[in-house]
Amino acid sequence: MPARTHKLIAGQREANRILAVGWAPVEHGFAHLKNWRILTKLRTDPTRATQLLRALLVLTNLAVNR
């Protein structure tokens, strides 16, 4: 990754922080699904896969947050 040539201004840092708060649960959910190898055998229609992944992420986050 190339080095940053300039510092971010306060507004940019705040925007990155807010985005990271939203990304973190999704990234953690996918990491858990990968560790559990749930996604390796997923062979289905993309529309069904999207619905399935959403449901799996909700269930994964519930299980992890217990």
Score class of each variant (00 low, 15 high):
36 W>T: 06
53 L>I: 08
52 L>A: 11
23 W>R: 14
58 V>I: 08
41 K>M: 05
42 L>E: 02
47 T>F: 11
56 L>T: 02
62 L>Q: 15
28 H>F: 07
32 H>R: 12
31 A>C: 12
24 A>Y: 12
50 T>L: 08
60 T>M: 02
30 F>M: 03
25 P>D: 00
43 R>E: 15
27 E>K: 15
25 P>I: 00
49 A>M: 13
21 V>H: 05
49 A>T: 05
40 T>M: 06
33 L>E: 01
20 A>H: 14
34 K>N: 09
49 A>Y: 05
41 K>S: 12
35 N>H: 09
63 A>E: 07
25 P>N: 07
22 G>D: 08
52 L>N: 08
47 T>E: 15
57 L>W: 03
60 T>E: 08
20 A>N: 11
41 K>P: 01
28 H>A: 09
60 T>L: 02
50 T>I: 10
47 T>Q: 14
24 A>R: 12
37 R>L: 06
57 L>F: 01
48 R>W: 08
44 T>G: 11
36 W>Q: 10
51 Q>D: 13
48 R>Y: 10
54 R>H: 11
53 L>M: 10
63 A>G: 06
53 L>Y: 03
46 P>F: 02
30 F>I: 02
60 T>D: 07
41 K>D: 06
21 V>Q: 02
22 G>S: 07
25 P>T: 00
23 W>M: 13
46 P>C: 04
61 N>G: 05
20 A>V: 03
49 A>L: 04
21 V>W: 02
26 V>I: 15
44 T>S: 14
42 L>K: 06
32 H>L: 12
20 A>G: 11
32 H>M: 13
27 E>Q: 15
21 V>I: 09
43 R>F: 14
30 F>T: 00
43 R>L: 14
25 P>L: 05
54 R>E: 11
50 T>N: 09
27 E>I: 15
49 A>D: 09
39 L>V: 01
47 T>S: 14
54 R>W: 09
29 G>P: 01
23 W>V: 11
43 R>N: 15
58 V>K: 05
59 L>E: 09
33 L>M: 03
60 T>P: 00
29 G>Y: 00
51 Q>V: 05
42 L>Q: 01
52 L>T: 13
27 E>R: 15
54 R>K: 12
28 H>N: 10
56 L>N: 03
51 Q>C: 08
21 V>Y: 00
21 V>T: 09
57 L>E: 02
44 T>Q: 14
37 R>W: 04
44 T>Y: 05
63 A>M: 07
61 N>S: 03
23 W>N: 11
56 L>A: 08
30 F>W: 06
47 T>N: 13
41 K>Y: 09
48 R>L: 07
25 P>C: 01
48 R>G: 10
46 P>Y: 04
50 T>H: 10
22 G>I: 00
51 Q>K: 12
48 R>Q: 14
52 L>F: 13
